[in-house]
């Protein structure tokens, strides 16, 4: 039973990733793509949580926190670029 739940959840999250990739590929403007990249980062944190549930090891969540940090900093950098500023002003 837990096996089935885990597989179903991973399948649903893969569908989410597919929708994000659709928006990254077809997004008419650059900000659309940036939004999809941001959301993809958060969905990956869900994957690490599921891995930690499956294995019972707590350090998969370390990877999740690290991924959230990198995703946040990347999104801020993208937003600053979209604003039309250089990185050092």
């Amino acid at each position: 039973m837990p096996e089935t739940i885990y597989n179903l959840a991973c399948g649903a999250l893969l569908v989410c990733c597919g929708m994000c990739l659709y928006r990254i590929g077809l997004g008419p403007t650059a900000p659309d793509r940036a939004v999809a990249i941001d959301i993809l980062g958060i969905v990956v944190v869900c994957f690490t949580a599921l891995l930690s549930l499956r294995t019972g090891l707590s350090y998969y969540l370390n990877i999740g926190i690290a991924w959230a940090i990198l995703s946040f900093v990347g999104t801020i950098a993208l937003a600053k670029h979209l604003e039309g500023k250089g990185f050092d002003e």
């Binding site: 350090y59 370390n62 990877i63 690290a66 990198l70 990185f87 050092d88």
Partner: peptide, 21 residues
């Protein structure tokens, strides 16, 4: 745990880069 010098160094750099940005 997973990680190590390079991964941790990237996060340390991220802290400074966030301030910089």
């Amino acid at each position: 745990t997973p990680g190590g010098g390079f991964a941790g160094g990237v996060i340390v750099a991220c802290a400074f880069i966030l301030v910089f940005l």
